[in-house]
Every structure is written in C-alpha cells, then in structure tokens.
Amino acid sequence: MPGGWMARIIGLRILTAIPLILLVSFIIFALESLVPGNPAETILGQNATPQNVAALDRQLGLNKSLFAGFWTWLEGVIHGHLGTSIISGESVSSLLNGRLGVTLSLVLLSVLVSAIIGTLLGFISARRGGLLGRLLDVISLTGLALPSFWLGTVLVVTFAVKLKLLPASGYETIAQSPSGWLQHLILPVAALSLAGIALVAKQARDSILGALEADYIAMLRGNGMREREIMFKHVLRNAAMPIVTVLGVVAIGTLGGTVFVESVFVLPGLGSQATQSTVDHDLPVILGIGLYFTVIVVIINLLVDIAYGLLNPRARTT
C-alpha cells in the first residue's frame, strides 16, 4: 500500500511521544519535591507572607502529594489548561501561543539555511578535497566553538549598530510584514545556524565520500552511466540519509539555542520567555514551555522519520 508506511510512522511517533511528554513534565514536577524546604518559599523569596506561600502551594499543587499534583496538572493539560503564570496571572497557553511563531520561524529558517549551505559546502569539499577540506574543518571547528550568544552580539553590533543594515532587536510577524519578518530574523538565524552549517557540511562531506565508494556506484560508473547523473541521482540521494539525521540533531540543537539567541536579539519567543520565567521562578510557564519544546522535538523526529522513509524504501518496512 503506497503511503501506508507514513501513517504507521506517524502513529508510532505519536505513541512514543506520550511517555516522553509524561517524562519531561514529571521531571520538572519531581524537581520541585527535591528542593530542601518549601519550594513556594524559595520561589517567592524571603519576603513572602504565609498567605502568599499557601496560595502558591495550592497553585503549584504542592499541597498535594507529588503524584496527585502531577495528575491534577495532567488533567488540566488534557483539557487544554496549562495553568496561569504566577507573575502575570496570564493563561500559560495563550502566553506561549503568542510566542510560538517567533521560535518556529527561527528554528525553521535556521535549519533551512544549515541544510542548504551545509550540504553545498560539504559537496564542494568532497569533490575538491585537499586544502578546501581542511579550510572547511577550520570553519566548522570555529562554527561549533563560538557560542551563539557571542556571535549574535558581534553580528548585532556590526550589522545593526555600525552598518545600520538590519534591525538590532525586536520582531514583526510574517503577516504584519514579510520583509520586516525576514529582516528581523536574518541576524538571529545567522547566529543560530553557523554551528548547524558546520555540522551538516562535515556530515555531507563524509557521507558523499562514503557513497562514492559504494559498490552500486562502481556498478553505475563501470557500466557507463554519466557522471553528472551518478552524482546527483545516486551519490547525493544516498548521502542524503545521514544528512537528514544530522539535520534532526541540528533542529533540536537550534531549538535549545533559541533560549540564548532570542535573549540576545530581544525576540518575543518561547526561548526568551523561558529565560525570563527562570529568573522569575515562574514554574507553570516553564512547565508549559517544556511541553511545547517536547512536542516540537517529537515533530522534528517525526519529520526526520518521514524523510527517511521517502529517501530509503527499506526504512518503510521497519
């Protein structure tokens, strides 16, 4: 049945997503019970009144046992209620939904840029080798080593502050202004994707070189297929599988990286909210972001699986 495998992969991923979501939220919940003393007191600080502490205890479910509290929160999640922020009192889900677009835009664009530029660099260095290969090694090393927040800062001061080419901070949605959206995202995406480009380029080079050595490539070359066709239809196609795997890793890493980069560029996304909520000890929001991030990770893994199935007929049967 054509397409049947895709439904199966989606079903399987959703099934494995459930224990994952339970695990992540339970870890965050369980952490609260590990804190010496009363977490509500820790969160509210020394000047908290007993009434405030008791209220927060109730809100966080700390007046109940760990599992009972967790269950209450889960029931809420099933009904679409993620609780309310203890700082602003706003509903967590509406707070996060408003910020989701920024983070998704960032991750999507960064992965796209990493995929295109990374594969291109890897391809060139696999074909040319030698000096270019070594240059690529140096670039990937620096790309991986420079922290994205440092790189982001340097980009802001050069391109936004000095050259005044691009906005230094802030955000416009794609609906408000597509060009504004892009302009605000160019620098953060550059800061976020350098490491991804490095990773993808390395993998692309290795897997292209690996595919070139394969028996089936020797068969095609030895029996007269044109080089261009071998390269594009056979070498690249087979090299694409490990590249897709790395892209999955890059996407998940980029998601984590938004926490730093959104703070540098003052972008109103989930990552900057996570930082702010950590400073505020706003647990319901952190729990909510944990849930959102986990779901995004599940979706990334699902997309990787589907891409795998499309590229490799054997992956459809397992």
């Binding site: 994952l20 870890i27 965050i28 984590g256 909520s277 950590t278």
Partner: peptide, 18 residues
C-alpha cells in the same frame, strides 16, 4: 527516550527551582 528531552528547558527548570 531521554535523548529526546529538550535539555535546556530542564536546566532552566532546575535553575528556577534551585
């Protein structure tokens, strides 16, 4: 399973709680 956990969020939760 654990490899799919968004690590950074857990770290932030740890920092918030501890």
């Amino acid at each position: 399973l654990i490899m799919s956990i968004p690590v950074i969020i857990i770290l932030l939760a740890v920092l918030a709680i501890f």
